[in-house]
Amino acid sequence: MEKQRDNNHPHICVIEKIVDETPTVRTLYFKDSVLANVLPGQFAMIWVPGINELPMSVMVSDVTDQAALTVRKRGESSTALYNLSVGQQIGVRGPYGNSFKIKNGKILLIGGGTGLVPLMRLIKFANPSNHITVLMGSQTKNEVFFEETAKKLLEKNSHDIVPVTEDGSYGEKGYVTDVLEKLLEKNTYDGIYTCGPEMMMYKTVQMANKKGIFVQASLERMMKCGIGICGSCCVNDDLACRDGTVFDGAHLSQKSEFGHSHRTKSGILEEI
């Protein structure tokens, strides 16, 4: 038996499978009973030894006690994680943060890019009686991913999966928020959940708040400690890592920084 683990100390895991999702996004699978069972919205700090440590939402796997990370190669650190091979090691600490409150009835998930990761986990935790609409945003056809994953996870739920591409090369054309706007003209929902680019979340929260629909967003900020003491991830008086990352729309509408500004590595507030 594994000794009681200190979740704030990096725990070493070995990559055992890699799946390419798009030309720039892949999912790395590894055995870890702690991260495999985190709540939707929770994240972990992922150490790429010798490179950096970055906050990542934990992707679902259909293998028991297997966790996964879906990463887009972008900066130096995410590219280093992306470039790892099967057999290489990462350190994980966490899980950190709170989780989505899943309402009964009709719920809508709206995400873009790797922001879909916590929403896939949300589906896994949803009630079989939930009717689930998933809006999946991306720029173009070859950047669409998780459509099959979502279908599989939604087998037991009545559902609609709506891919949306900015250039119209696949699914609906435009921004996911345009599609949401149209849907909200005719439908109502018991809950809306969003994760992805901040402007997408900002518009989603505004629209839901206007209609009086319960909405939650999972925010991303510069993170160093993950445990609420370094202060890097603050959003006004909240710490994304500790008070979030999931916040209610009604709460976010009181925060001047949401949708407008975030902090740099040195802690300077800058416009998004």
Partner: peptide
């Protein structure tokens, strides 16, 4: 302004 060091910067 100082950016500080890359992560990991803190752990238990």
């Amino acid at each position: 302004p100082w950016e500080g060091y890359p992560n990991p910067t803190i752990f238990s």
